[in-house]
Design a protein around this nucleic acid. Structure first.
Length: 220
DNA sequence: GCGACAG
DNA sequence: ATCTTGTCGC
């Protein structure tokens, strides 16, 4: 029997209470390694594949990676993604030899109804600086942005600033960036932009490719 | 009640 | 997220 929504919601309030929005770094120069995490699943199967790939910073060279195949505990429920993907990402992190300075997650961080998105949940439980980098919006309002790379718009929920909508590449759909843990909004956006050769930051692209490689090469 | 809704 | 190849545009 899977965990119920009420229990997950209560856990999210506890996670939110532990989130630290003070950036662990005073400058991007202090960062030496950045990891990206991603999860992919078979359609109508409960099997999921996850990967964490570590990159050097700012040289952006691949250093190491870890993959995992495991059954997903619960289905995808908007607002509760961390309970579905979190466990697999934690297993990948255990396999990584050197702890990365920062972990970028494929999903929201602070920009969540209870301020406890995937990046916050992973960050708090691993006590690791994390960034939420989502490809679409979960909550929050923002103004349209210009279409040049680097353009950004504040993401607000009521009167609270919860993230930044960032154009990581000219003329492509923007990214929704929000801090996970030991991170602040603007630093998170600066870090992500500095790692974007294409729409997604390199560590996330690598994790996405690796996870799909795992899944496909497994069905044979 | 109705619409929105990370991956 | 997933089913899917080539193709058009910057």
């Amino acid at each position: 029997m899977a965990i119920d929504v009420a229990t997950m919601r209560d856990l999210q309030y506890k996670v939110a209470a532990q989130v630290d929005l003070t950036c662990a770094f005073s400058s991007l120069h202090e960062i030496k390694t950045v990891a990206g995490a991603d999860v992919s699943c078979d359609m109508f199967s409960r099997i999921g594949y996850a990967a964490v790939v570590v990159y050097s910073y700012p040289s952006l060279k691949r250093i190491e990676e870890a993959g995992v195949k495991r059954e997903l505990d619960i289905p995808y429920i908007p607002g509760y993604l961390s309970f579905r993907e979190g466990p697999l990402i934690h297993e990948c992190l255990k396999k990584i030899k050197a702890r990365p300075d920062v972990l970028i997650c494929d999903g929201q961080g602070l920009a969540h109804p209870r301020r406890a998105g995937l990046a916050c949940h992973i960050g708090v439980s691993e006590d690791l600086p994390t960034v939420g980098c989502a490809k679409s919006r979960l909550i929050g309002e923002y103004h349209a942005l210009l279409d040049d790379r680097g353009e950004r718009s504040e993401l607000y929920d009521k009167n609270e600033r919860i993230g930044v909508v960032l154009r990581s590449r000219s003329r492509v759909k923007p990214l929704f960036i929000s801090p996970g843990h030991k991170m602040d909004i603007d630093f998170a956006a600066d870090l992500v932009l500095s790692m974007c050769k294409f729409r997604l930051p390199e560590p996330i692209r690598a994790a996405h490719n690796y996870v799909n490689w795992l899944r496909k090469s497994d069905a044979s």
